[in-house]
């Protein structure tokens, strides 16, 4: 006969707790399916600027943080604001916003709106961004 001491009881309690925790964590993976969500982000893109951007779309998806960071430094630190042909820098946040901003009910929407170009993807990817604590998130004009 097994003698159940307080110690083994503690162990059993702990195992049950861990099992429940794991079930909860794993179960959470199925939430989107159960909720009927599609896998993959639904990005709201304004096609105002046509199909072309500064780079092919897949590269922008991967590289835009680096682009933005690189060009913000050259603008802030060195005063470089344009390419030699007078065009805007590839990593110009202002240019991104001016081109990709979308309107709802005739008004540009803010990043707090899940349909905002930046928000829609960042929420999906679970990546926070703090650009718009200082930068405006809609075109000025």
């Amino acid at each position: 006969m097994i003698k159940i001491t307080t110690y083994t009881l503690e162990i059993i309690k702990f195992k049950v707790f861990i099992t429940l925790l794991l079930i909860m964590i794993m179960g959470s993976c199925f939430v989107p399916v159960v909720a009927g969500d599609k896998i993959g982000p639904e990005i709201t893109v304004s096609k105002a600027g046509g199909d072309e951007c500064v780079l092919p779309a897949d590269e922008i998806r991967r590289l835009h943080p680096g682009l933005l960071k690189h060009d913000r430094n050259s603008t802030m630190r060195e005063g470089i604001r344009t390419l030699s042909d007078g065009g805007h820098l590839k990593g110009s946040l202002k240019a991104c916003i001016n081109c990709h901003a979308i309107k709802e009910d005739g008004k540009y929407i803010n990043t707090s709106n899940p349909n905002h170009f930046c928000t829609s993807c960042h929420v999906y990817a679970g990546v926070s961004f703090d650009c718009f604590q200082c930068h405006r998130d809609t075109p000025e004009k």
């Binding site: 202002k94 604590q133 200082c134 930068h135 405006r136 075109p139 000025e140």
Partner: peptide
């Protein structure tokens, strides 16, 4: 927290 900043003068809380 600030909103609707000028395009050329980004400015925000905590800086």
């Amino acid at each position: 927290t600030l909103t609707d900043q000028k395009e050329n003068t980004p400015r925000g809380k905590g800086c």
